[in-house]
Simulated scan of single mutants.
Amino acid sequence: MIELKNIVKRYESKSQTVTAVDDIDLNIDKGTIFGIIGFSGAGKSTLIRLFNYLETPTSGEVIIGGENIGQLSKRALRHKRQKVSMIFQHFNLLWSRTVLDNVLFPLEIAGVPKKEAKTKALELIERVGLKGREKAYPSELSGGQKQRVGIARALTNDPEVLLCDEATSALDPQTTDEILDLLLQLKKEQNLTIIIITHEMHVIRRICDEVAVMERGRIIEQAEITEFFENPKHSVSRRFVQEDLKPSAEYEDISELVEINASDKLVKLNFSGEATTQPIVSYITRTHHVAVNILEANIKHSKKGIIGFILLHLQNVSEHEFEQLTLELAEKKIEVEVISHG
C-alpha cells in the first residue's frame, strides 16, 4: 500500500546542512495503524510530511497505492493529497469559520456542489460526535472537540490514508483515549491506513498494529506491536517501553521498604498476551510452596492484548527452586528479572 524507498530530506543553509530524514525504507500494509515514535528532534514530523509531499524529499521515492508521488503532475498531486489526508497537533482550524464551515472547506476547494457538500459535512460532524455544535466557532470548543472537527475535515474527501502528526499530544488523557477510540472505529469502518507520529507510548500501545522507532533521522527499529513490547532491541526502544511500564518508585527505594533475608528474592515478572490471564501468584505458592508478597503491579491494555509487570517478594526460596521456577515461568512466556536477593 505505502512504500518509502531510500528517503532523504536535507535542509541547507549557507552555514550548514541538516539531515532531518536519513535513508529511510518503510513498507506499510493497507488497513494498518502504523506508529512512528521518537524523542523531539528525531525527524518524525518531517517524515510524515514527506508522505503527501507537503515536504519534498531531497532523494528517494514515496509510492502510495502503486503511484510514485514524486512523478505526479501538480494537478495529480493535488488529487492524490485528497486521498492522503492529515490531522495536526494544533488542529489547524479556520478560527473565523464555524464547525460546519471548517468541514465544508475542503469540499469547496474540491468543487463539490453546495447541497451535496453540506449533506456530507453534516454527516461527518455527527459521525465524530459533534451534532448540535455545527454553528460553534473553534474558540467555543474544547481541545478534544477541535480535534474531532479536524478529523471530520480530514475525512471529507474519503481518504485512503490518514496521517496524524502528534494528533493527541495537546489533549488530556481521557480526551486522548476518546480520540484514539474514534480513530480505531473509523479505521474499522472505512479500512483506513493510519500513520501516527507520536512521542507518547500510550498512543502506540493503545491502537497501533506496528511501530517504528526513529532517532536522528533514521529508523532504528521496526516491529509488530506485541514483539516490540516483549523484546525491544534498541536502547531507545527499551527506554520507551521501560518508561511506559516502570514501577512507581525506584527499585532501591522499594528494596529498602522490604526486609530481604538471605534466602529471599525481589523479582519482577514481565508478561504480555495470554500470560496475563494466568493465576501466576497462585501457581507459585501452590506448586513451589513459596510465600509471596505482592509489592506492585502495572497492567496496561494494547490493541494486541495486555502487557505489564508484577513485582514480587519471594520468601525462603532456594537457588535450585528458583531456577526451576524461572524455567517454568519462561515456558508460560513470563520473563523473570531479579531485582535484589539476600
Rank of each mutant, 00 (worst) to 15 (best):
E166H: 07
T198V: 04
T19L: 08
K333Q: 15
E134G: 07
K83H: 13
P247N: 10
I294S: 11
A275M: 00
L269T: 00
I2F: 04
E189S: 10
E126A: 14
S263A: 15
I64E: 00
P279C: 02
L327F: 11
I33F: 10
F309L: 09
K304Y: 06
E221N: 01
Q242T: 11
F34E: 08
E256Q: 12
G273F: 01
N231A: 13
V211T: 05
E140T: 10
R218C: 07
R205Q: 13
E200C: 00
K9Q: 05
V99M: 00
L130A: 05
S235T: 11
F240Y: 11
I63S: 06
N6M: 10
C208P: 01
N102P: 06
P57C: 02
L104W: 05
A76S: 12
S235V: 13
T285K: 13
L171H: 09
R238D: 11
R205A: 10
Q82S: 12
E274K: 14
S340F: 12
L50D: 06
R286W: 03
G38K: 04
T58F: 08
A275W: 03
H313L: 06
M214R: 03
L155P: 04
G308D: 07
T277D: 12
I87F: 07
H341T: 12
T326S: 13
A117N: 09
I2S: 02
L266P: 01
E230F: 11
E3K: 15
S272M: 05
E328Q: 14
